[in-house]
Nucleic acid binder design. Structure first.
Length: 422
RNA sequence: GGAGAGAUGGCUGAGUGGUUGAAAGCGACGGUCUCGAACACCGUUAUUCGAUUUAUCGAAUCGUGGGUUCAAAUCCCACUCUCUCCGCCA
């Protein structure tokens, strides 16, 4: 949500931003509604003022009581009438307000979509194999690590069982990430994965993309697609002390996505599944610190992937690929030798005050003034995809998998995942 | 699932129809004192919206949404959430 005052004064800027984000919102229509709304508001305020005055007079002077009560009744009728009229306008106005996306920061490239994203840099050395690297799907099947066939029996397509070392890898990754991030003042947290409509809407996920979200109608609860949706609203209607910022959380949760509209894409394996586990960073900070904090989250993502020695590249998303809430966003894409391509493994967004405004999360500065915080999120590890990257990058000629050095302490110091004896 | 209690400002907590936007305390901020700090004392301290000559003025907000009333934190209804007891349960 943006500030209506800002929209009034910068309508051209907003229009351009919407265009750049490839979102169609009727800004002129909104401004017209806003003007109408203001007239109604003033009218109602005026009537309420007279109502309050009448009430005051009755209190002071009982002699004219009957006459004044009659007057008060008339005012009441009038207020009711105008309130009814303005209701529709107010509704439409709020609807439009919710449709306006966050404005991209000035250094974000204007572009239509994925094809216009900038590749900022490559990191890590892409291993050369003296054999044809296999896809993680083949590797996992031979090593009995992932079972999607049985998952299909139980849950349908796009589900998987992580077994044996794959399951142990998840436990290890969990330890590995928390050990590294708790040092940086992240508060570890395991959030609810079922949330109510209001927080889901406030985080900006129901406007476009409701299709993507699982909903439990009987209980009117939504399954989170990322723990961000559950962590962000934690502090809604709260005011932080400035000294407590930035407030950083490291959340771990299962994530649920319907993957509607991705039929036929990545149908094999667990690259794109309806349910996966994810470690997510979330940060509340002062507006003046959010750029720095964003770089910090990105640096944490890079640090973790570097420690695993997996080659990757950093992508800066263009305006058309930002999503509603983000003002700026970076993705990390890991190199997957088995697929012979880079695939997204993390994503970090600076949502500036867009979410904070809807969630009403503020902080109080030294001058006792309160102001909206900025919110940022970043994937620490999407576990399934990291496991994929490990399997493909650490595969050996004999079909076994070397365990990354950094993870061995959490894997009983084992060096390899060996083929199972049948 | 059954029974009961409750939700008030940054926090604790008073307030059962009319100068109550709301006592008091705590916290925070400013000042006096001090070499400096603590203590003590004095003062300031909610948010949103609208108008504006930028001094101010008006409206709304006491969990949420309705209702009663000339007038609602206060009365009525519904909902949400929290707590206690019982039942059930990993």
């Amino acid at each position: 949500m943006l500030d209506i005052k800002f929209i009034r004064e910068n309508s051209d800027l907003i229009k351009t931003a919407c265009e750049n984000k490839r979102v169609d919102v009727d800004i002129d229509g909104l401004l017209k509604l806003d003007a109408k709304r203001k007239i109604f508001l003033q009218e109602i305020d005026k009537l309420r003022k007279t109502r309050n005055e009448i009430a005051e007079q009755i209190k002071m002077d009982f002699s004219k009581k009957d006459e004044l009560i009659e007057k008060g009744k008339n005012i009441k009728e009038e207020i009711l009438k105008i309130e009814k009229e303005s209701e529709e306008i107010e509704k439409e106005f709020n609807k439009l307000m919710y449709l306006i996306p966050n404005i991209p920061l000035s250094d974000v490239k204007i572009g239509r979509g994925e094809e216009d994203n900038e590749i900022l840099r490559h990191e890590g050395i892409i291993s050369q194999f003296d054999f044809k690297p296999q896809s993680y799907v083949e590797l996992a099947e031979k090593l009995d690590l992932i079972d999607t066939k049985r998952a299909a029996k139980i849950s349908g397509s796009r589900f998987g069982y992580l077994k044996n070392e794959a399951a142990l890898l998840e436990f290890a990754l969990l330890q590995f990430v928390s050990q590294n991030l708790i040092k940086e003042n992240f508060i570890p947290i395991i959030p609810p994965v079922m949330i109510k409509r209001q927080p889901m809407a406030a985080m900006g996920y129901l406007i476009r993309g409701e299709e993507e979200i699982y909903y439990l109608p009987k209980d009117e609860l939504y399954l989170v697609g990322t723990s961000e949706q559950s962590i962000g609203p934690m502090h809604c209607d709260e005011i932080f002390e400035e000294k407590n910022l930035p407030k950083r959380y490291l959340g771990f949760s299962s994530c649920f996505r319907r993957e509607a509209g991705s039929y036929g894409k990545d149908t094999k394996g667990i690259l794109r599944v309806h349910q996966f586990d994810k470690l997510e960073m979330f940060s509340f900070c002062r507006p003046e610190d959010s750029e720095k904090e964003h770089q910090f989250l990105l640096s944490m993502e890079e640090k973790l992937i570097q420690l695993l020695e997996i080659p990757y590249r950093v992508i800066k998303m263009c305006t058309g690929d930002l999503g509603d809430s983000a003002a700026k966003k970076f993705d990390l894409e890991a190199w997957l030798p088995g697929q012979n391509e880079f695939r997204e493994i993390t994503s970090t967004s600076n949502c500036t005050d867009f979410q904070a405004r809807r969630l009403n999360i503020r902080y109080r500065n030294k001058n006792n003034q309160s102001n909206f915080v900025h919110t940022l999120n970043g994937t620490a590890f999407a576990i399934g995809r990291i496991i994929i990257a490990i399997l493909e990058n650490y595969q050996q000629a004999d079909g076994s998998i070397k365990i990354p050095n950094a993870l061995r302490p959490y894997m009983n110091n084992k060096e390899f995942i060996e083929a199972k004896k049948h």
